[in-house]
Write a protein that binds this DNA or RNA. Structure first.
Lengths: 230, 230
DNA sequence: GTGATTTCTCTACGGCTGTAGTGGATGAAT
DNA sequence: ATTCATCCACTACAGCCGTAGAGAAATCAC
């Protein structure tokens, strides 16, 4: 409006602004509402800007997904350690339950918009292989952390257990955000109990706590046997 | 094309055809690909037909969702009983694990398209309250069955347990269909083990098998304490 | 200063979208 | 047989879409 200051002295990387606005539009209006012109308007940029920075629609989606990957990585860290070094994953059941409950609870309560945008892009990645690659990369990080924690707990099948624990979290989040459970999201305490129950079911029958073994991957190759779908 | 036969002697309810085509388009091209004209073309209907049966876009989405609810109800029954009366839910852990594994495995293997369309509509229901109502109704049925089974197993908190079991299933399905686990979906055997582990974790500490108690809801009111979000 | 080069703004265009209205064919009622 | 009501095929229209390109502005090299 008004004077349209040129040369933008404070320039927080136009692409970041475009990515943030694209994510917001994805949440508020869905895939049909994410258009070049809508991003221009929503971000207060001169008309045509988005069309310049992301010439095609596929490029625009990639900008949005890249931005979201950065955002998610940034909010994963603080939930993990309140001020310590990043790789401090807990290695006891109670600590893991606390961590997982904190992450899921935060996602349901404060991260609703982010999750909706993520689901929207996951669905789109079903049809666009360029997006699929970026999406899978982010997911692998998350799952890797879970597998590591399960292995530290002495799981007999950390790959499967880690994957299913993450799947449970995703299911709870989806149900509470976009599914039929949106009206009555579980409390953080409920989530914690749920995690504890899952872990106890997974670890029943294995050594409850292999004493002097802070970390490490079990050598058994569980899961990942079906290389591709028919 | 050709002669455009009028009066349609075989008329399998135009709305069914439109609904099926809408679902297919949702899967193949996403929300942006679902348009009145695309349905006409995809269903082989004369141009303008979809626009007549579903005057607005919202109406078109409702037709699609209604059709999908019917389809899901129809495929839920056969997985439940191969030829018996419908209300025969299993009431022992092994039977439940078999049933749940069968449903999830079928959804991942053969029901991929249906699930993608469902996710697409779930996201849209985030923004359209008319869809939300229909969507929630279908979800409540599913969850009710799970709660009933958990209660029959002697769960101390069937509401929470049923909900979390369904959430786990949804998570596994989403991950294997639209998430980062699409390339290596779990085998049916893996799923079965996962269900068994979850159930054992949930039932640990309660009477392992209350002998003569075929069914019934626990009187304790678990979950559902948070009436609405902020 | 002056010219070259990059960075961005603005506009144009063909195509597709949602939606409403018009008029013809169909079948029922009289 | 004629009239009427219903159902449906078709067309029109205004608006928005993705994308490309022309040209202004800013930056930089000298």
């Amino acid at each position: 409006m008004t004077t349209a200051k040129r040369t933008s002295p404070d320039r927080p990387d136009r692409l970041v602004l475009i990515g943030d606005t694209a994510i917001r539009l994805l949440v508020e209006r869905g895939m049909r509402g994410l258009t070049h012109r809508a991003v221009d308007e929503g971000a207060g940029l001169p008309p045509g800007s988005t069309s310049y920075y992301a010439r095609t629609r596929a490029a625009l989606l990639e900008v949005a997904l890249a931005r979201m990957t950065v955002l998610e990585a940034g909010e994963f860290a603080p939930a993990l350690a309140d001020g310590e070094s990043p790789p401090a994953l807990p290695s006891d059941s109670a600590g893991i339950a606390d961590l997982v409950a904190a992450i899921v609870d935060a996602a349901i309560r404060d991260g609703r918009d982010q999750k909706i945008a993520r689901y929207e892009l996951a669905l789109e990645a079903t049809r666009r292989s360029e997006l699929r690659a970026v999406y899978d990369e982010a997911g692998a990080m998350f799952r890797g952390a879970a597998v590591g924690m399960l292995a530290a707990l002495g799981s007999s099948a950390p790959e499967r257990h880690g994957r299913f624990l993450v799947a449970w979290c995703e299911g709870v989040m989806f149900d509470s955000i976009a599914g039929s459970g949106w009206a009555t999201p579980p409390s953080r305490a409920d989530i914690r109990v749920g995690v504890t129950e899952i872990l106890s079911g997974m670890l029943a029958g294995s050594a409850p706590r292999p004493p002097g073994r802070p970390f490490g991957n079990a050598p058994t190759s569980d899961m990942g046997d079906s290389p591709d779908r028919s």
